[in-house]
Lab assay of single mutants.
Amino acid sequence: MATGGRRGAAAAPLLVAVAALLLGAAGHLYPGEVCPGMDIRNNLTRLHELENCSVIEGHLQILLMFKTRPEDFRDLSFPKLIMITDYLLLFRVYGLESLKDLFPNLTVIRGSRLFFNYALVIFEMVHLKELGLYNLMNITRGSVRIEKNNELCYLATIDWSRILDSVEDNYIVLNKDDNEECGDICPGTAKGKTNCPATVINGQFVERCWTHSHCQKVCPTICKSHGCTAEGLCCHSECLGNCSQPDDPTKCVACRNFYLDGRCVETCPPPYYHFQDWRCVNFSFCQDLHHKCKNSRRQGCHQYVIHNNKCIPECPSGYTMNSSNLLCTPCLGPCPKVCHLLEGEKTIDSVTSAQELRGCTVINGSLIINIRGGNNLAAELEANLGLIEEISGYLKIRRSYALVSLSFFRKLRLIRGETLEIGNYSFYALDNQNLRQLWDWSKHNLTITQGKLFFHYNPKLCLSEIHKMEEVSGTKGRQERNDIALKTNGDQASCENELLKFSYIRTSFDKI
């Protein structure tokens, strides 16, 4: 039985969820670079991206490699990797027998973001014989899940209580170790020597080791999670996991709180800001991140802002960003909400898709409305799209047979046209069989910064309504002859009103 693990408890099935942008060198404390989270699957090609990484700022997932063999891993080693800020997950990587050479110096898994409450997941690794993470000293947050690894031993010899604050939620089941077939031998045991430290858990006094050649490092209890030197002297209180010299914040392997210019500090002093819960960055760093993602459509890219001495992905609820200094300031009234469309555009074809934009005031991208039916549609669209004030790209209304009016965009005031449909149009209306009105132009103002209007096959939309939009939106004169079809717009509506004058002759039985 794995020490510190839980057996036999019912657990939810383990679901495996399925960018080499360097964020800056980590400095003297770390020998390499800070790398983003990685999802490495199918083959070993991307694994080489770990070569210079000291910190993975995010998670590391290595999974679904069915053609790899043990010899493929023999020359692979990433000794610079010290810390993973989120979680480490391995799933069905064939041929991998140990992690001792792959990650010989991995010391800390912070667990800032977890995989279903777990910071370390080893699942269905069919050839893994031992973990071998002999320098792993601290899992700051989260638990361990090690399950269905039929060859995995050296679990009962690990004292997880020396690595985690609590072992109650560890789930370590259905491994070879369960069948008591392992016969784990710690260093020196074969020669009758006791080389590794022994600890007591559940009444068992057991030597602690990761492999037959690597003991588990056990520091004096007084050192807590700070770690200790090879001689057993406690590291500085700002260290986490390990250090090369005692009581020196510049000799830590990793930091308990924050890293700044080669030393570990309790908090980031001005003019620095907390970033990702582990390091200090200056304003320029946060500003660069903001600008890199301002026009990016890459998933996970955030326009970072500053709030409460932190550089964070977005302002919290009730705050909006001051564009001059990136500071989050309290909103006066309802907060603006910028919604970034991942692929640059979004099609609204149902109430469900409209709900995804609920509360958005600025759309960074283009909207395509293609709704053919739905219950209580006008009210639903207004509830979900009615706060949109600005669209950076274009607005396209296409084959939306259920629409009679666009009044559900009740606050839309600006279409920038930074991206144009077919390279020309910022407003595009095609084949809307029941569209009769755009907006009530006596109450609604709309500016279209650039781009043209396109109207074709809107049989109940009168040309007068379209011409009014040209005047109000500032697009009059931009359109070419064929942009607004004269014969297919309003051709099934009563669009022309003329005053009919009647004269009559009164007659009676005795007068003409």
Rank of each mutant, 00 (worst) to 15 (best):
S161T: 14
I40V: 14
L44F: 09
Y304E: 01
S225C: 14
G203M: 07
N175Y: 02
F91V: 01
R263D: 04
I109Y: 00
D177P: 13
V121M: 00
G203P: 07
H212Q: 14
K100C: 10
C209D: 01
W278P: 01
K193I: 03
F115T: 01
R69E: 06
Q204I: 13
L136G: 00
L240G: 11
I82F: 06
S317F: 14
N242R: 12
T199W: 10
V34N: 02
R141P: 00
L164H: 09
S77N: 05
W278M: 00
N309F: 13
M38K: 15
G32F: 10
R162H: 08
Q61L: 02
G183W: 15
P330W: 05
T68V: 05
P36V: 03
L99K: 01
W160P: 00
C239S: 00
G232R: 07
T250H: 09
L99F: 07
H291T: 06
W278D: 00
K251I: 03
E147L: 01
P197Q: 15
G58K: 02
A198W: 06
Y30P: 10
W278H: 06
L44P: 09
G318H: 05
R279P: 00
P271T: 11
G37R: 07
C234Q: 03
C243A: 00
N43H: 10
K217N: 14
D165E: 10
L102Q: 00
R279V: 05
I62M: 04
L136H: 00
D184N: 13
L174F: 12
F275H: 06
C223P: 02
L164W: 01
L133M: 06
E147H: 00
R263F: 12
G241E: 03
I172H: 03
K310M: 08
N179P: 07
T229L: 11
I222L: 12
W160S: 01
E57Q: 15
K217V: 11
S237R: 12
F78R: 04
H226R: 11
N149M: 00
L233E: 12
C209Y: 00
D101E: 11
N242G: 04
L327K: 15
L96R: 00
K191D: 11
I62H: 03
A198M: 07
N257T: 09
K148I: 01
T157I: 06
L233Q: 10
S323F: 04
Y304D: 02
C331N: 04
S98R: 03
Q303H: 06
N322S: 08
T85P: 00
S77H: 01
C311T: 11
C235W: 05
C328G: 02
G333W: 15
G227F: 05
L106A: 00
G262I: 03
C255L: 01
R208E: 10
F115N: 01
I185W: 15
V305D: 03
C331W: 12
H48I: 11
H48F: 07
N105D: 04
E168V: 15
L50N: 00
L128H: 00
F275L: 02
N42C: 01
K217R: 08
S225R: 07
G95H: 09
S237W: 07
V121A: 05
T250Q: 06
T140H: 05
S296R: 10
C252I: 01
T267L: 06
Y154S: 05
G32T: 04
I306H: 01
V305K: 06
P249Q: 12
F91N: 00
V200N: 13
S112W: 13
Q61N: 02
A119L: 00
K294P: 07
V281L: 04
L174M: 12
C182G: 02
Y273W: 08
Y273G: 02
L164C: 10
D169M: 13
K217C: 08
G227Q: 06
C196P: 09
L90G: 01
P334S: 08
H214Q: 08
E124L: 00
I185N: 10
E51V: 13
R298M: 05
L155W: 07
L50C: 01
Q61E: 07
N195D: 14
Y272R: 01
P316C: 00
N242W: 05
I56R: 10
N43K: 15
I82V: 07
S324M: 04
R141H: 04
F123D: 00
C215K: 05
R256L: 09
R141F: 03
E238A: 10
F115L: 01
V200S: 15
P79H: 07
P334H: 06
Y134P: 06
H212V: 07
M83I: 15
I312M: 02
E314S: 04
S213F: 14
Q216C: 04
K310W: 15
L102A: 01
A198G: 04
T329Q: 15
T194S: 13
W160E: 01
R145H: 04
A198V: 07
H302R: 10
H127D: 09
N202M: 10
P79V: 04
